[in-house]
């Protein structure tokens, strides 16, 4: 992984433009929430007989009568079941928050898929999942740093260090030495 610039070294995933893998026998599109116009056009470019659309949402809305709708909590079971029925020559295209796309990556890898079969669109928002290195608790949808850990209430510096295993950024307490020295929160990008 390449740092974005010398001034700000990071350990964040880099998302390349997604193109359809024409060699694949089957294409599985996965989208969190309502699919963007761009994603819909991308989806339409693939032959109907070779594709499946999985929408992950808490509300009951579909764009396509053939799509499969699940909630976040149902995702792992449904995706595992779908992958078990698909040919080896399958490609996944996934759009959503960064934590979501890496959750999908993790389920797909568990099913024996390899990285080049999982195409990830750039995350739709700057929200981060935060992993606390002190209590191992996960805090969702973090937008600013420092952020308060939902497990141990420590003030965590949100580092630009992404863990693929946890699909989360690493957070470390920032005011351990001096509780009065807490930097002003800055918006994460």
């Amino acid at each position: 992984m390449q740092p974005e610039s010398l001034e700000a070294p990071t350990n964040r995933p880099i998302y390349s433009p997604v193109i359809v893998n024409n060699k694949s026998a089957h294409h599985l599109f996965i989208c969190e929430g309502y699919p963007s116009r761009e994603f819909q056009i991308f989806y339409s470019s693939v032959d109907d007989s070779k594709k499946t659309l999985l929408l992950v949402s808490e509300s009951d809305s579909t764009i396509d009568h053939d799509s499969i709708l699940v909630t976040h909590s149902e995702l792992t079971a449904k995706l595992t079941q779908l992958l078990g029925e698909m040919p080896l020559s399958t490609t996944i295209y996934v759009l959503g928050s960064e934590a979501f796309i890496w959750d999908v990556h993790s389920v797909a890898t568990q099913a024996g898929m390899v990285a080049e079969q999982i195409k990830m669109f750039a995350p739709v928002s700057g929200q981060r999942r935060l992993f606390c290195t002190h209590c191992y608790h996960i805090t969702e949808d973090v937008t600013h740093s420092p952020a308060v850990c939902s497990g141990c209430q420590r003030n965590l510096l949100v580092r630009d260090h992404f863990s693929r295993l946890h699909a989360a950024y690493v957070g470390v307490q920032i005011d351990a030495e001096d509780p009065d020295d807490l930097p002003l929160p800055q918006e994460l990008i």
């Binding site: 992958l83 078990g84 029925e85 698909m86 040919p87 080896l88 399958t90 099913a111 024996g112 898929m113």
Partner: peptide, 8 residues
């Protein structure tokens, strides 16, 4: 031929 996903 016809190998399922997850085959290596």
């Amino acid at each position: 031929a016809d190998r399922p996903l997850g085959t290596h």
